Amino acid sequence: MTTKFLPIPLTGVAFPKAEYEHRHKKVLEAMDRADLDALVVTNHTHLQYLSGYSGLGGYFAPFPLILVPGKQPTYVVREYEVNAVRTDSCIDEIIAYTQQNDFAKVCADVIRKYGVHGKRVGFELCCWNLAPADVIALQAQLPNMKVADASRVVGLVAAVKSDMELEIIRSAMAWTDVAVRTFQKSLRDGVTETEVAADIEKEVKKAGGHVAPGYNLMFGERTRLPHGIPADFPIRNNEPAMIEIGGTEHNYTIAVVRSAVLGRHPETESLHDLSAEALEAAISSIRPGVTAAEVDAATRKVIKKSGRTQVFRHRTGYQTGINWTERGSLSLEPGATDVLQAGMTLHMPIILFSESGYLFGCSEHVLVKESGVEILSQTPHTLYRA
């Protein structure tokens, strides 16, 4: 039975309902291609993409959005969170459970009601927010259900952005550019990472925007860290600095990596030159119809030619959108067979390791277009010298 609560006048939904209905249609088409009779969506990013609700109440137990052809999309959520889900989502059919142990039974009841309990049901098995115990509990309730891995069904649909999404993405990138320019202007001998971070957040807020929490900002010896949130650590003359930060709008986070040197630092300057050359080769290779592996190969060709093959220890980039990145999304890496399409947005952070352990580099956030590629940032990825 659908849970009924008094309507709430506020709404946190980012898009008109028609936008979400279009997304549901595209996912249902992808389900058909994957031979799925139902899809149980539990990944928080995918929940927000399909409903508007962030899924954050799902720390208690999964909040599955169940999609079945010919049926209303149905949310199964904790009763405590129903008003939040109703306020921040476009989903009308909401079924509640109360205790953690109720999740499997209530979810199974919905699957059974829709007549797919003995059919092929997709689960996001390699994404966050679904534990093996959750799947086991559902299988105990529905022993004839055929579990299929549908981890990438929603993500690959979400990879291609609508015009409405692109408006938000461009807005988020504007805040990213404000953050980068503030980072560059704030560098001086003795200034700490936390002081620069405070300047960034002040300037972005003044411009009317936000940056995603947990961004990376490292000075000097701390640029040897793969990830480092701002600390009370000062930069001195002849030291490097690097930032990876993303403006955010309706949880669409659009990041870039930018590097700087206060004075001179030949070791990281050389690393940045190679990073920029590899990044530009990757960008030049992007167009619809190219595979993700081909873009990655363009990066690796430059690195190999340099003779410094050990400096590059990760993938070339990844699909972006809601939240910063997601496990299971399109990835620009060796062997990846996903084909680029117009409307995809990609972040390519080419961060390299120097022989003594510094990490340094640059990135671009790009939009794949029919004509090739558009760089979204207005701040160049050239090394900033303070």
Rank of each mutant, 00 (worst) to 15 (best):
V147W: 01
G214T: 10
L125Y: 05
T223H: 11
E201C: 04
E193T: 10
N216V: 08
G118Q: 10
V191E: 03
D134Q: 12
C127R: 15
A137V: 09
G122N: 07
F103H: 08
P240K: 03
D232C: 03
E193N: 11
V204K: 01
L138D: 11
D163M: 02
G208P: 13
A148V: 12
V135R: 04
S171Q: 14
A148Q: 14
K202Q: 13
V160D: 02
G122Q: 05
R222A: 10
M164K: 14
P213H: 13
A179Q: 04
V116R: 12
E203Q: 15
I168E: 08
M164S: 14
K113E: 15
C126D: 11
V106H: 12
V160S: 08
I111D: 02
A104S: 09
A179G: 04
Q139W: 08
L156V: 02
I169K: 01
R170Y: 04
L138P: 13
V196E: 03
V106I: 15
P234G: 06
A158V: 01
V204T: 00
S162W: 08
I136H: 06
H117K: 10
N144S: 13
S171R: 11
A197W: 06
E167G: 08
K161H: 06
P230K: 04
K119R: 15
E124Q: 10
R188Q: 08
D149H: 08
F103W: 15
W128M: 13
P234C: 10
N129P: 03
A158L: 03
R224A: 15
V196G: 00
L156N: 04
I235T: 07
K206A: 15
R188N: 01
D189C: 07
V180W: 06
L217V: 05
V121N: 11
P143E: 09
W128F: 13
G155L: 12
A148C: 14
V160R: 04
M218A: 15
E124S: 00
I169N: 02
H227V: 06
Q141L: 06
L166Y: 11
A131Q: 05
Y114G: 02
D109T: 10
R236W: 11
L187M: 00
G220I: 06
E203D: 14
R170F: 02
